[in-house]
Simulated scan of single mutants.
Amino acid sequence: MSHLVRKLENFVRLSAADRLMLNRASAQRVRTFAARADIAREGEKPKDVHLILNGWACRYKQLEDGRRQIVSFFLPGDICDLNIFILREMDHSIGTITPVSIADLPREFFDEISAGYPRIATAFWWETLVNAAIQREWTMNLGQRTASERMAHLLCELFFRLRLAGLADDNSCNFPLTQADLAEATGLSKVHVNRTLQELRASNLIVLKGKMLVLPDLERLMSAGLFNANYLHLDREGRQLDANE
């Protein structure tokens, strides 16, 4: 089962035909990128929608002097902007963090979904609304939370999103982000990021071993980050309604 199918099935009950359609699209027009490479650059004309099959990527904005702000992370199963081909040019860049493989989804794929796959279309709307909610939460993170709250909140969010796609164990997940990545995502300096991670380690809230993140007490980390998972809409209301039809 693809990461996209696993994630979308948290919201709707996909039929065998739905899953076949999504898995078929995921297997066509596949491209691979090395770590720290651009998939799409600001100013380019977007043609297709990118589905992350494997690896981690990010959406970022960059100033002329090189300063960069990461404004979102893309994980396996994530779609980079469902309607991006409507735009004349990219207003942001998409770059890889690890080696990444993507599937390029053409406009015709979404036309076919709209015409004959209503459950997938509903799930894609859910994806869009959740992404908007995540962006609102990131704005709150940058504007109001302390450094420690900011970091704890981001780690909780990434863990929950990975678990949604079947990529996290009960208390651990792959975590390839560097301190520089975390600095660009949280608006903190690298020195401040290092200090904040040390504080979370000292409180036994996180364990970072190589490229693995272990959360000894998820509830405590959520409390430290003032994290409420409601904005990720994990309650599966749509799936429950679907089951009652």
Rank of each mutant, 00 (worst) to 15 (best):
148 S>A: 14
150 R>C: 13
121 A>I: 01
131 N>K: 15
122 T>N: 03
130 V>Y: 05
141 N>A: 08
133 A>T: 04
142 L>H: 09
148 S>Q: 11
144 Q>S: 08
135 Q>H: 12
149 E>W: 05
131 N>Q: 14
122 T>E: 06
127 E>W: 06
150 R>E: 02
117 Y>W: 05
144 Q>E: 08
128 T>V: 11
129 L>P: 05
148 S>M: 14
139 T>W: 07
129 L>T: 13
145 R>M: 14
143 G>R: 13
117 Y>S: 04
145 R>T: 01
115 A>E: 13
123 A>W: 05
125 W>P: 01
137 E>C: 07
139 T>C: 04
125 W>G: 03
136 R>L: 15
133 A>P: 01
152 A>W: 08
130 V>P: 06
151 M>P: 09
146 T>Q: 09
150 R>L: 05
133 A>F: 06
153 H>W: 15
135 Q>E: 13
134 I>C: 08
129 L>F: 15
137 E>D: 13
124 F>S: 00
144 Q>V: 15
146 T>N: 08
143 G>F: 06
148 S>E: 15
152 A>Y: 10
127 E>N: 12
118 P>I: 00
133 A>N: 11
131 N>A: 14
150 R>N: 11
141 N>K: 14
132 A>Q: 15
147 A>S: 12
142 L>K: 05
144 Q>W: 07
115 A>G: 02
140 M>N: 10
133 A>I: 05
123 A>S: 11
141 N>R: 15
136 R>G: 06
152 A>E: 05
142 L>R: 10
129 L>M: 13
145 R>E: 01
123 A>Q: 04
126 W>Y: 14
115 A>I: 03
128 T>E: 11
150 R>Y: 04
140 M>C: 07
127 E>C: 10
126 W>K: 14
135 Q>A: 13
146 T>K: 09
142 L>D: 03
139 T>Q: 08
141 N>H: 12
123 A>Y: 02
143 G>K: 12
124 F>V: 01
132 A>S: 13
144 Q>H: 09
120 I>V: 09
131 N>F: 13
126 W>P: 04
121 A>S: 07
117 Y>F: 15
122 T>H: 08
121 A>T: 01
125 W>T: 11
147 A>V: 03
116 G>Q: 01
121 A>W: 03
128 T>N: 10
141 N>F: 05
135 Q>V: 15
151 M>T: 13
134 I>K: 06
116 G>D: 05
134 I>L: 06
131 N>M: 13
116 G>I: 01
127 E>T: 09
136 R>W: 12
117 Y>Q: 02
149 E>C: 05
128 T>K: 11
122 T>Y: 03
148 S>P: 03
129 L>G: 05
149 E>P: 04
121 A>V: 01
130 V>W: 09
138 W>M: 11
126 W>G: 12
121 A>C: 03
137 E>L: 09
117 Y>H: 09
149 E>M: 07
143 G>M: 07
139 T>S: 07
124 F>P: 00
144 Q>C: 08
147 A>C: 04
138 W>P: 00
144 Q>K: 07
124 F>H: 00
123 A>K: 02
118 P>R: 00
141 N>L: 15
151 M>W: 08
135 Q>Y: 10
